[in-house]
Simulated assay, not measured.
Amino acid sequence: MTKCALVTGAARGIGLATVRLFLEEGWRVAMVDRDGTELAAAAAALGPQVCALEADVSEPGQVAAMVEAAVAFGGGLDALVNNAGVAEFGPIADCDFAMWRRVMATNLDGVFLCSQAAAPALAARKGAIVNIGSISGLRASTLRVAYGTSKAAVIQLTKQQAAELGEQGVRANCVCPGPVRTKLAMAVHSQEIIDAYHDAIPLNRYGSEREIAEAIVFLCSEKASYITGQVLAVDGGFESTGVGLPALRK
């Protein structure tokens, strides 16, 4: 039986890298994104083992229809990767309620809605949920009051899912990426920021989208069959060093 995964935020970045790795492992994949144009272009290059579903994960009606279509495409559902997210940064004083809600609607509400809608299908196949958190949900940083709080909430939501859905045979884990060398990050990070991150990360580099995908697909696989309720920082050691000065590690 060919397994099927549903990946949100799949048109680019970590989501698209995850889709590609699932395909390499022989899975079918329902790709979800609200950017229909970019989603269609990405899916067209991947062949018949993918299904492109345009949907906004913050809208309950769209989520219900998207999950139904994904289950029909795959003949069931073995994994849900809640990767869709938005990032809006700025000082606390500049974070109005509209910005707060935009971030929470996708980053937190979307994870809740997709997981709740997919849970019966996942239970039928003893499947897995992998939520994408962030290093910003594990350690505080300036300018991330909405983003960091949303990701910290995703971590707790993952644990709640593991505690309750485990009795149905569904595992739930959270991957928290550190700085990742995406096109967007490289476009907005100055050389000064890049150097500072390299200094603060024990492995002295950004991660790649593929490295994050490897962790996600592993947690969805049978190799992780006894792993649930866990939070995995894929960050080159960034979180482990806390606020210690890099110079003091010499």
Rank of each mutant, 00 (worst) to 15 (best):
S150E: 09
M99R: 15
G85D: 11
Q161M: 13
I155Q: 08
F97E: 15
S115E: 05
I135Y: 14
K126V: 11
N131A: 04
A105T: 06
D96F: 01
V111K: 01
R144Y: 12
K159I: 09
A93N: 14
I135T: 15
R144K: 14
A87E: 14
V81T: 04
E88T: 15
A163F: 06
I155N: 13
K126P: 10
R139V: 08
Q160P: 06
S150T: 01
V103K: 00
A146R: 02
T142H: 15
A87R: 13
L165E: 01
S136T: 15
G127E: 05
A153Q: 06
G85Q: 10
L108Y: 11
A124C: 11
G90P: 10
R102T: 08
G148I: 03
I129G: 08
N107A: 05
M99Y: 11
R102S: 10
A117W: 00
S115H: 02
L157V: 01
M104L: 06
A105L: 07
G148Y: 03
G137W: 01
A163L: 12
V154N: 06
L113G: 04
A153L: 05
A93M: 10
R139F: 13
G127H: 00
A84D: 05
R101E: 02
S150C: 09
A119V: 09
G133A: 04
A128K: 09
A121I: 04
A117N: 07
A163D: 07
N82Y: 02
Q160D: 10
I129A: 06
L165P: 01
Q160H: 13
T149I: 04
W100I: 04
G133I: 04
T142E: 15
V111D: 05
A162F: 07
S141C: 12
S141K: 13
K159R: 15
N82Q: 04
Q161H: 07
M104H: 00
V111H: 06
W100H: 00
I92R: 11
L108S: 03
N82H: 01
A163P: 08
R139D: 08
D109K: 11
A140M: 13
E164K: 09
A117Y: 00
E167V: 14
C95G: 10
K126R: 15
L138I: 05
A98I: 06
L80A: 04
I92E: 13
A162H: 05
C95Q: 11
A98K: 08
E167K: 15
K151L: 04
S115A: 05
G90T: 08
C95Y: 09
A140N: 10
E164D: 09
K159A: 06
T149A: 05
V111E: 00
T106W: 03
G133H: 03
Q161D: 11
G127D: 02
A123W: 10
A93V: 15
Q168D: 13
I132D: 00
L80F: 02
V145L: 14
G127N: 00
G148V: 00
V81G: 03
N83V: 10
D109G: 10
Q160A: 14
C114N: 07
A162C: 08
F89G: 12
S134D: 02
K151Q: 04
G85K: 00
K151M: 02
E167F: 12
A118Q: 03
Q160T: 12
I135C: 14
G166S: 09
I155F: 10
T158I: 03
